[in-house]
Design a protein around this nucleic acid. Structure first.
Lengths: 139, 139
DNA sequence: CGTCAATAGTAGGATGTCCAACTATCTGGC
DNA sequence: GCCAGATAGTTGGACATCCTACTATTGACG
């Protein structure tokens, strides 16, 4: 139970710090993650469904996230070239700019890890990998 | 960044499993945590503010949680004996029964850790302690 | 080549979390 | 004693998440 509690608390702490740091950019961690994911794709656009898979969130959550990013002018919904069911979220120039600034801030706060040194963070990723493996999140 | 991502994903996975297991008892992890906390107190009752401190959540979250537990008959709001500002959440007999059953289920799924062996879970708690220490969550 | 199951996305409703603002009560300094 | 500031809890609003149910489109099998 100590492990489960630790994960919950660590998550609260890290997420809280991250969202605090993203506040000036009018972003949240969900929106930041989504924006970053899109920007990493070669064409700068991704079908919403694919995003849900990658981020491991429900399709309705993606809809919500993209709604907000689009309202803020950071992405644009465009039609999928061949599949008329699908919608692509395409990052805008403004979106890339905002993402870049936000990422600087993320790096400064070390993605919520704060003053925790490098070595322990590697440990954390490694030990939690066990949990993620058990759920098929990673192989 | 890998560490931050790992914490987020592990949290999603563990919380998802826990809430799934609590579904038959009409509980969520928040409500389960709150109920357990109250039951551990000597008198079986706690001021809402104290609960917020212990669980590290906002006062309004406690209000919400207790609202639901009370609506389900698992706790009852009673007046604080000396401080008329404060309200105590007191666990009911039905609450203790429900908690007991839910706890059995929690133990069975090892609090969401599933098939992860004992040793790695200890590792997880230890490595994440670093993050929690950095936020003053633990000493 | 036509029907029907599968897939992509969205709408509505529930829960949990936070923040800002409010009411009620307590407490300490004058 | 009294009044200002602190404290306890709630209310209303914002976000993120999930689930169920729905529409539109695709694709596969008879």
């Amino acid at each position: 139970m100590a492990a489960a509690t630790s994960i919950t608390r660590a998550h609260q702490i890290v997420l809280g710090r991250i969202n605090q740091a993203l506040l000036p950019f009018d972003l949240t961690f969900s929106r930041y993650e989504a924006l970053a994911l899109i920007s990493f794709s070669r064409s700068g656009a991704l079908p919403l469904g694919k995003m849900g898979e990658r981020l491991q969130v429900h399709p309705t959550s993606v809809t919500n996230t993209i709604d907000r990013l689009e309202a803020d002018g950071l992405v644009r919904r465009v039609a999928h070239p061949t599949d008329r069911r699908a919608t692509l979220a395409k990052i805008t120039a403004q979106g890339r700019l905002r993402l870049e600034k936000a990422t600087q801030s993320m790096v400064e706060i070390r993605f919520g890890l704060g003053e925790v040194p490098e070595e322990p963070t590697v440990q954390i990723a490694n030990t939690l990998a066990e949990v993620r493996r058990s759920a098929g999140d990673i192989s």
